[in-house]
């Protein structure tokens, strides 16, 4: 399966989804006015990936900012990962947040409480 690689912009994050290694990475800012457009290819890719996922899928989410429009799309991404996990594959979501960014930590905890996949909260210390 072909990797999904998208460069980051001022309003959208960088994306690196690699099926062979089972790595899913979203980094940067996610503040587009309409996030559906941006996230649709990501959700579609995961749908396809879910048909024959790696034994372990490692997910790294490292967002500096995200808007509420993105928050729902990120949940859609996590729901795809949850389906993979429920089908008895290993999935771990690493949620990175900057030092002292309690809002971003709390946002991760919100997702953790909705999605039945193991989360790891990782503080980035400079």
């Amino acid at each position: 399966m072909e990797a999904l690689i998208i460069e980051g912009t001022a309003k959208t994050p960088s994306v690196r989804f690699e099926a062979g290694q089972g790595t899913i990475e979203i980094k940067g800012r996610s503040i587009p006015e309409n996030s559906i457009e941006f996230y649709k290819p990501l959700v579609d890719w995961l749908e396809e990936y879910g048909k024959s996922p790696a034994a372990l899928t490692k997910v790294n989410i490292q967002l500096e900012y995200f808007n509420t429009s993105s928050s729902k799309c990120i949940l859609d991404v996590f729901k795809k990962l949850e389906a993979i996990y429920k089908a008895k594959n290993e999935v771990i979501i690493n949620w990175y947040y900057e030092e002292d960014d309690e809002d971003m930590l709390e946002a991760g905890e919100d997702y953790e409480s909705i999605i039945r996949v193991p989360f790891k909260m990782i503080e980035i210390v400079d």
């Binding site: 996030s35 928050s71 729902k72 949940l75 709390e106």
Partner: peptide, 24 residues
Amino acid sequence: KDMYKFILNHQKLSAKGGGGLGLL
């Protein structure tokens, strides 16, 4: 927090991408 999570999990985005979560 509970209301945010509820809307996040139960309400669809509008065609314009609005989620009804901005004020909250």
